[in-house]
Design a binder for these strands. Structure first.
Length: 504
DNA sequence: GTGGGGGAG
DNA sequence: CGTTCTCCCCCAC
């Protein structure tokens, strides 16, 4: 069950991702000083104070509100930790939203850009819900899942007339301002009415209930795992004029070449971990085979898509048409040859597959004029799943795996600073997040404690060992408290150490 | 499995 | 900034 999401909204070249914690994960169970809070809140009010944390794991569970508070603080600690390391190690600033669902954490991740984090504070339910208040202020089209078409339908319903939008601009925004609140409070609004407005042939089943839930802050969408390979790879180009077979063939060769190179870089990996039996050796020895690559996933289908330009009207008016049409065929297996040259493979693919597809799409010898051509490979069949199923991004699972991961390097030394089993992370953490640093309070936000500056120079940090490349060691591994031996994720250690200093 | 609609970034 | 280039999921057939 997912009840906790942190949206990491992208900047620069990093794509957004979400982290979640399970309701029954052990995080809330370990002794933890959650009195600190990082970043901003929505609304800009102090978070509810917490009851003192239970002194032993067997103490009674905190109230529901305290649990929510605790989890939001924990989320802010995790977000701070991730943003901190992201900026320090890679130079990326980032913005994070912390809430209990993907919808809300994503939306609240849009505030305090480009270098901050924002948490929606309780209450989450009832008339005073901050979630509902936050959503209500948004334009209806800003809700993820409500794009241009659905937003226009909703605006039209609320306004009782077609919404006005910038003339001549297809992508232009609307001048009408219809908020989530306007839609929610419009006469007789409910899931069934929405289904009537938005539903129809081809539309998603239960779209009305889904949008109704979203507008009310209800979102049970799960945090998906990252995949090794995308579902499809496509390459396309648009054209002012493309109306001869010769030009089309040339463009198909261009596109297919790009696509094949993309496939080779994105869908293959170095196969330098091959096991070879070695004479006289017991067992197997790993020998690097430089340059050898293998396919991670093999697409099964090839799709050719075009966007024909609207036939010129008699008066020469331009009715922009964005309809695409496509034909697809099985992707021939020869394309996966890594020994043949791209050019040779492309030539074969264009002649044997793409041109036939094109003629299926445009049987007429001429008369068409294409404004866009797209070539895609789809229907990936993953080969030899390498256990890279993205479990490293599942924080709940990460905690559960800690027992076995940490068992072998549990430290007896009380002073974790001197341990060389900790990849430098523990020391790093303590230097950077020690209480004095965390207690610094910004003058302009009396209720928020911020780590400021976000990035502090760490003396003689070991760059190589401190990397989270592959996210296995540093991110996936946790820490052991030098005082009590409790295991927990690295980002939580500072708050745990503060717990030991709390008065009884 | 194929073709299309709608959406996100 | 608006537009383009990808990528996604869902649906009907």
């Amino acid at each position: 069950m997912i009840d906790y999401n942190i949206g990491l909204v992208n900047h620069n070249d990093l794509s957004g991702s979400f982290f979640h914690l399970d309701r029954d994960d052990p995080t809330v169970g370990f002794p933890y000083d959650a009195s600190s809070f990082f970043g901003h809140t929505y609304p800009a009010t102090p978070m509810q104070p917490l009851s003192p944390p239970p002194s032993t794991p067997t103490s009674p569970l905190p109230s529901e509100l305290d649990t929510l508070n605790l989890r939001l603080r924990l989320g802010s600690h995790l977000a701070q930790h991730l943003r901190h390391r992201l900026e320090e190690q890679y130079g990326y600033t980032s913005t994070v939203g912390i809430s209990t669902t993907k919808l809300v954490s994503k939306l609240v991740g849009n505030v305090n850009k480009p270098r901050g984090q924002t948490t929606i504070v309780p209450p989450y339910d009832g008339e005073e819900s901050n979630v509902v208040a936050f959503l209500d202020a948004h334009d209806i089209g800003k809700i993820p899942g409500i794009g241009f078409k659905l937003a226009q339908k909703l605006r039209q319903h609320v306004l009782q007339r077609p919404p006005v939008h910038d003339a001549g601009l297809v992508y232009g925004g609307t001048e009408e301002n219809v908020s989530v609140s306007d839609v929610r409070h419009s006469l007789g609004m409910c899931a069934e009415l929405l289904e009537g407005i938005l539903g129809g042939p081809g539309s998603q089943k239960g779209i009305g209930a889904k949008i109704w839930d979203l507008m009310n802050g209800v979102d049970d969408a799960e945090v998906g795992k990252a995949r090794v390979a995308p579902r499809q790879i496509s390459i396309e180009d648009s054209y002012i004029r493309l109306d001869t077979v010769e030009e089309v063939k040339r463009e198909l060769q261009m596109l297919a070449g790009s696509l094949l190179r993309r496939m080779r870089t994105d869908l293959t990996e170095d196969d330098d971990e091959a096991d070879f039996p070695v004479d006289g050796a017991v067992g197997q020895v790993t020998i690097a085979v430089p340059g050898k690559r293998r396919w991670l996933a093999k697409p099964r289908n090839l799709r050719l898509t075009t966007r024909p330009r609207q036939a010129r009207n008699p008066d020469g008016s331009r009715v922009r048409c964005f309809k695409r049409i496509s034909r697809s065929a099985p992707l021939p297996g020869f394309i996966f040859s890594l020994s043949e040259s791209v050019d040779a493979l492309v030539d074969k693919l264009v002649n044997e597959t793409l041109l036939p597809l094109f003629h299926r799409l445009h049987p007429e010898k001429s008369g068409w004029d294409l404004s866009l051509v797209n070539v895609a490979v789809t229907n990936m069949a993953e080969t030899a799943t390498d256990d890279r199923d993205g479990t490293g991004r599942d924080i709940g699972r990460m905690f559960k795996r800690q027992e076995s991961v940490l068992k072998e390097w549990r430290v007896e030394d009380k002073d974790a600073l001197s341990s060389d089993h900790d990849n430098g992370l523990h020391r790093d953490m303590m230097l950077r997040d020690k209480p004095e640093v965390m207690q610094r309070v910004r003058d302009d936000s009396p209720h928020c404690m911020d780590l400021e500056p976000l990035v502090e120079s760490t003396p003689d940090g070991n760059e190589e060992e401190d990397s989270w490349d592959g996210e296995e060691r540093s991110f996936d591994a946790g820490d052991v408290c030098g005082t009590c031996g409790t295991m927990m994720p690295t980002f939580a250690m500072a708050a745990h150490l503060r717990y030991h200093t709390l008065p009884d």
